[in-house]
Amino acid sequence: MSRFFKMVFNEQFKIYIRKSTWIMYILLAGIIIVAGVSTKAFVDLEDQYQNDDWREVMQEENAQLQKEQEEYQKKMEENEDSFSIGPDMSRVKKNNYYLEHDIQPTGYGAWQFVKDNEMLLSIVSLLTIIIAAGIVAQEFRWGTIKLLLIRPISRTQVLLSKYAAVLVFAFLTLLFVLSFSWIVGAILFGVEGINPEIVAPVDFLDMNTAYEQINIINSILTGYGYSLVNLVMMATFAFMISTVFKNGTLAIGTAVFLMFTGNSIVMFFSDHAWAKYILFANTNLKMYEDGTNQLFEGMTLGFSISVLVVYYIVFMVLSWLFFTKRDVAGQ
């Protein structure tokens, strides 16, 4: 068993010794810093509510917004053709929530910044796909596969160690995004406490949404956790293409293409009953918690998990079959 760990270590070593990996990390760090600086510069961080007079500030703001809204409506009635954007009335709603529940808003800090960086997970997916696509195909390209396979280790173990290395890479990169975001957030905004809670809209896309109080760390864990499903599936897909076709470019291309077009593909075929069996109709497990975006009738959490498991097994078995049965000949 310790041999297996050594082999995973070997694969990690080969990933992290290369400059291209470090460039990926530098890129990721750069994106986080830019996100932090622009958040500080352009986003309403609710600093105005941090003093003891936050109730008065909110009431004033509400009155101000109400007035603006009335003026705006009057203007719209007078001149129906004009097009302009009214004041942000969701602010009023949010303020009312705070006032009703007598909660002083938590200031923006490292935890919220981490939560806001959840979208960076798609970049982590991208990097993981790149690694997964290369990890088998490159050994063939370099010719080193011959030296790997003439060891007293079964091909199944060689393949598994590579797959494990991909998952370890994804995990470490995720950890990097979380911790680096937190550090950047802490430096730019400070830390809002050990276990802070914030008020957030129930549904981000709905203008008239209600508000609720949520625990940030919980929200981070579930948010990142749900996105991991997609990450693992796409990485496994890229790994499979890489192993079957010995072609890293093809693997990156197809996996990235599918990652970005997956939802459109589901939409395109949504008239058909079988569309619910498409992988991408099932990767967003969050929809079952929210109760939103139910795509097809009869879809349940159990159904989606079963579909995911079937896809996963197919990907793994195909990789395994091609890798273990293949004659390793010249290029």
Binding site: K14, I17, W142, G143, T144
Partner: peptide, 12 residues
């Protein structure tokens, strides 16, 4: 064994 060319990891 060395099979064909001695191909090793060039970046190590």
């Amino acid at each position: 064994a060395i099979v064909e060319n001695p191909e090793l990891y060039p970046f190590m």
